[in-house]
Design a binder for these strands. Structure first.
Length: 256
DNA sequence: ATGGCTTCATAGTGAAGA
């Protein structure tokens, strides 16, 4: 089972890239973030034509998440239960016995702002919910744009970023709290090249200079992690015309 | 040194992203 996550920064703009990537890579599951489309504008027909069933939860202009799957999606859940939130940032479904949770974690804008406190509150609610969700579904994968670079090695210039948004200690603590639930960072299960990132600013030719951050992650429950045989970041789509600023992250699971 | 781009909502420019 090949699972992947990609913040595509507007599905409207990026649909051709998504279709090309699906055709070339044939993932079983692709989680999308920042679709930026209300549900009545979701390009369902095109994705079904490509062989994917879809669950989606979107809104105009901001946020929006979706799960594309070759197999049927069961028990679709939108949002964090008992957490009141207008913003469409969470969708979950069970696919071939694996609970897939797709998240677009708030950006937080800058430390100590209202958006930052919302981010921390949101992460706390997510973690509390996942603790339950993992009891109900031991085989769980949490994929998405976490907007957190867990360690300094996930940042191109840790000194310049020290204490800032995406790397601050409270954010990293929140990431570790997810790990304490028994979730494993699939990317770090394997040897990886230094300076591996998943996001590069559109400005300042950041991609060409590899000035990036690793903020998109696949976390696997400890029941699932032993079945993971590979995890990588695909930089190829970032090289295209009009790319998303994020690259897809892909994990392979060898399930019985 | 600073801001540097892209998207969306608009119909000028501004907000937001990370």
């Amino acid at each position: 089972m090949k699972i992947a996550t990609w913040n595509i920064n507007s599905l409207n703009v990026r649909l051709p890239h998504v279709l090309d990537w699906l055709a070339a890579n044939q993932p079983d599951v692709l989680c999308l973030q920042e679709t930026k489309l209300p549900d009545d504008r979701f390009p369902l027909a095109e994705l079904q034509e490509a062989g994917y069933q879809c669950a989606f939860s979107g809104q105009k202009t901001y946020n929006g998440v979706a799960i594309l799957s070759k197999s049927p999606l069961a028990d679709v859940q939108c949002g964090i239960p008992d957490f009141d939130d207008e913003q469409k940032r969470v969708i979950a479904a069970t696919i071939d016995g694996v609970r897939i949770v797709c998240v677009y974690v708030p950006n937080g804008q800058a430390v100590e702002t209202d958006k930052y406190f919302y981010k921390l509150k949101w992460l706390k609610a997510l973690t509390a919910w996942l603790a339950e969700e993992m009891r109900a579904h031991p085989k769980l994968a949490l994929l998405g744009d976490y907007n957190i670079a867990p360690e300094d090695r996930d940042v191109y210039d840790p000194q310049a970023w020290a204490g800032g948004i995406l790397v601050s200690e409270p954010e990293r603590d929140a990431f570790r709290a997810l790990e304490r639930l028994g979730l494993r960072d699939a990317f770090r299960l394997f040897e990886q090249a230094d300076k591996s990132y998943s996001w590069w600013d559109y400005r300042a030719v950041a991609f060409r200079r590899n000035m990036g951050l690793r903020i998109d992650h696949i976390l696997l429950s400890d029941t699932l992690a032993p079945h993971c045989t590979a995890c990588s970041i695909d930089r190829e789509p970032r090289k295209l015309e009009r790319p998303s600023d994020h690259a897809p992250v892909v994990a392979e699971l060898s399930l019985p």
